[in-house]
Design a protein around this nucleic acid. Structure first.
Lengths: 141, 141
DNA sequence: CTTGAACCTCTAGCGACTAGAGCTTTTAGA
DNA sequence: TCTAAAAGCTCTAGTCGCTAGAGGTTCAAG
């Protein structure tokens, strides 16, 4: 059995993050020692690594919950899993397209900069001309 | 003079968002009518459009604040603006690289799927093998 | 037996909004 | 002129996935 600190090291998740995952129901509540400290089994390391890997691929915690539920139905077809992965890929690809469009616009703005003074700055001018640009939505990079 | 609803339409920002921008100091507090309603000038439309365009390019509100401050120093060199834009471009490009790496891994996982049952699902298996993958950080897509 | 590391819970903060409750003001039509 | 609806107001809380800190308890090593 492992304490939360040990399993944090073993899984690569932070202690706080593991407690957070328990709180949102992504992992089951751990058993406790007499002194109320969490105790984990080796199998929990695997589960946390799974979560970490899925998170690193951009899956939301809700989606990961779905994936973990599906894992418990080993006789089912994996079509659902396949769909989730494809949706995630589509999401990532869509995001790449958006960002490429941003990069293009930024590059074009920067290339026009003649390094003069602020009054003649092409970058600021370009930022004032929203009409002429593709109408992207506000976007966190 | 425009009410907040009018300027929202004119600028493409939402009413709530405009009040939020005032709150965080991105735009100056608007003058008010006797009945305490905000009043805007035409110039404010331009400022909001500028903000919207910059946000759509992924600039943070803090960075936009800097850009707007720079605009008031029209005699200065635009080197600072240029730097901000280049940093933003670097940020976007870095993000694209990350996402491309994710997309690649997702594609590889999906291509291995033999559409059998969950017990043999290559996608789930791949998610369990964090060791063998590039160690990306958790990432919001 | 002491000390300090690791654990516990609970709360608040991040960023950039968004949504809703509960109120007041304005505007348009009868 | 009256009334009803639309639009405005403030304030609070929620989103997502953590992260950090306060203030307390438990455990392990020396």
């Amino acid at each position: 059995m492992l304490t939360i600190g040990k399993i944090a090291k073993a899984s690569g998740c932070k202690v706080q993050t593991i407690r957070y995952y328990e709180q949102i129901g992504l992992i089951a509540a751990a058993s406790r020692t007499e002194g109320n400290q969490r105790l984990y089994r080796q199998a929990d390391v695997d589960r946390l690594q799974f979560i970490r890997h899925a998170r690193s691929l951009g899956f939301s915690t809700d989606t990961i919950k779905d994936l973990l539920t599906l894992e418990n139905h080993s006789e089912m077809s994996c079509a659902a899993v396949d769909n989730i992965a494809r949706e995630q890929l589509a999401l990532v690809q869509g995001r790449i397209k958006q960002l490429q469009s941003l990069a293009k616009e930024l590059e074009s703005m920067i290339s026009q900069c003649a390094h003069e003074d602020i009054a003649h700055c092409k970058i600021l001018q370009a930022l004032h001309e929203h009409d002429h640009c593709d109408d992207h939505k506000p976007l966190d990079v």
